[in-house]
């Protein structure tokens, strides 16, 4: 029970922390703006789906997706669809391979890439942005991946410990 509350609390914390990282972005190097988009919540939920329950991760994803839509985007349904979709995709891939921390981290990065691309596609479609694909990859996708990669490295062990302490011990033994 305590663990369940802890999981939801961490999800809430990450949801509230994300925009604080967005404050520091975009950063300017050599006259170019680089955008770092925090996707911490999705990364956490992918870990949750892998190490605990896919269904719960998707419900939490749906809930925070709707909050995200209402508070930031004003297009209800965008993140509410993409968050659970991303988690579903991740855990489907996980079904075919035996998950460990490295694999989960890699899959999480792949999913973040797909998520960013899907959102780029959506915003291009409703013509909020006219950023060319090349610039998108250079100025948004790569910095975003770098940031989230750093985040995963720093927190993966904490996540897995929080979600399922026993597994960590197992994994540590195998390494």
């Amino acid at each position: 029970m305590i663990q369940r509350i802890a999981v939801v609390a961490v999800a809430l914390l990450l949801f509230l922390i994300e925009p604080n990282f967005a404050f520091l972005s975009p950063l300017t190097f050599d006259q170019t703006l680089y955008y770092f988009v925090p996707r911490f919540l999705v990364v956490f939920l992918i870990f949750l789906a892998t190490y605990q329950s896919k269904k719960r991760a998707m419900y939490i994803g749906l809930f925070f997706g709707i909050l995200y839509d209402i508070f930031y985007v004003d297009v209800i349904g965008l993140y509410a669809f993409l968050y659970p979709g991303a988690i579903f995709l991740a855990s489907t891939i996980m079904g075919y391979i035996k998950p460990n921390m490295m694999v989960t981290a890699t899959i999480a990065l792949v999913i973040v890439t797909l998520l960013e691309t899907a959102i780029y596609g959506f915003y291009s479609f409703i013509s909020i942005t006219d950023m060319p694909w090349q610039l998108f990859v250079q100025e948004r996708l790569l910095p975003t991946l770098a940031m989230n990669f750093l985040f995963i490295i720093l927190t993966a062990i904490i996540f897995v410990y929080l979600i399922n302490a026993k597994l960590v011990r197992n994994e540590m033994n195998t390494v």
């Binding site: 925009p19 990282f21 967005a22 404050f23 930031y72």
Partner: peptide, 15 residues
């Protein structure tokens, strides 16, 4: 005081 900036940073909005 700015309390949030859309983390996905596509629409340039602050709250």
């Amino acid at each position: 005081t700015v309390i949030a900036r859309n983390p996905d940073q596509w629409e340039e909005k602050i709250i």
